[in-house]
């Protein structure tokens, strides 16, 4: 099999866990379970620490507080105002869930029995980036889409919300055209969210595979050059994991702000 074929198959094939394929548990779904468990493992002790003492003590509480406050002060409040603080838990959840999903593929995990594309069961490393598949990023974008439109409808009422889709003061003849254009725009926004996150996560992995693949093409001696280079890309991947979680959360906040304040 050509290296390019192997990479392409590895990146696009979603492997079901042996015996659990019937209920749709794949390596990616397992990855999401792990990310959710990590969220609980992070925030239950954090919540307990904050409840005990509002002054953050220790690196763990301080680190989390820095990230949480950054998202509040630089993302949520500029677009939603202080009233927007009530939406913060959801935005924080988006950020940390996506971040953990992004980071999971960068850490080795235990092997698990999976069903390959040929239908045979084999053992495979269970470490996978759940956000490296568009089903996951698409679902996240769909959840965000329903959430911010739902809140917009709740804030303005359904009729006013639909009326506000088209800018006011237009000649009547233009309204149907603009309505269609605006609806397409609303649908494109979550699609762009989906594609951006998925493409960034998959793109980084592809680069890593290609660089490591050079060892197989040029022999073991090339690893002297290839491994440090792959390590540099790996560090870049960690940065991208944070950046993409931030970008997703940021854009969801922008869209939420637009849904809540249609005139601005």
């Amino acid at each position: 099999m050509l290296l390019a074929d192997w990479i392409s198959e590895h990146l696009t094939h979603v492997e079901a866990l042996a015996g659990l394929g019937a209920i749709g548990i794949s390596k990616h779904v397992l990855g999401m379970f792990v990310a959710a468990a990590l969220l609980l493992a992070t925030f239950i002790p954090f919540g307990a620490a904050v409840k005990r003492d509002l002054v953050p003590r220790g690196p763990f509480v301080n680190l989390l507080e820095v990230i949480l406050l950054f998202l509040r002060d630089e993302v949520s409040r500029p677009f939603l105002g202080k009233d927007g603080d009530r939406f913060l838990p959801v935005l924080w959840t988006f950020f940390f869930f996506i971040l953990y999903c992004n980071l999971l593929g960068l850490f080795p995990m235990l092997p698990a029995p999976v069903v390959g594309h040929d239908g045979a069961t084999h053992w495979s490393w269970s470490g996978v980036t759940p956000t490296g598949t568009y089903w996951v990023t698409g679902t996240l974008a769909a959840i965000a889409f329903l959430w911010y439109h739902g809140l917009g409808i709740k804030a303005q009422g359904l009729v006013a919300y639909v009326k506000n889709i088209v800018p006011s003061g237009l000649p009547l003849v233009l309204v149907p055209f603009l309505f269609v254009i605006e609806v397409i725009s609303h649908l494109i926004k979550p699609t762009a969210l989906m594609i951006r996150l998925w493409a960034n996560m998959m793109g980084g992995h592809t680069v890593l595979y290609v660089i490591i693949g050079l060892v197989f093409m040029f022999g073991f001696a090339s690893s002297i050059v290839v491994v440090p280079f792959a390590f540099a890309i790996y560090l870049l991947e960690i940065f991208v994991a944070f950046l993409q979680a931030y970008v997703f959360t940021f854009l969801v906040t922008v869209f939420l702000g637009a849904a809540l304040h249609p005139d601005h």
Binding site: D73, R77, K82, P167, S185, V254, G257, A258, H261, H264
Partner: peptide, 27 residues
């Protein structure tokens, strides 16, 4: 292009996707 224009200039020149007044609200 319409989306691009809306994103950069916002509706009726009031600024794109910004909070009321187009200014960062008080923190």
């Amino acid at each position: 292009f319409y989306q691009l224009h809306q994103g950069v200039y916002g509706r009726a020149g009031r600024g794109p996707d910004r909070p009321p007044g187009g200014r960062d609200p008080e923190r």
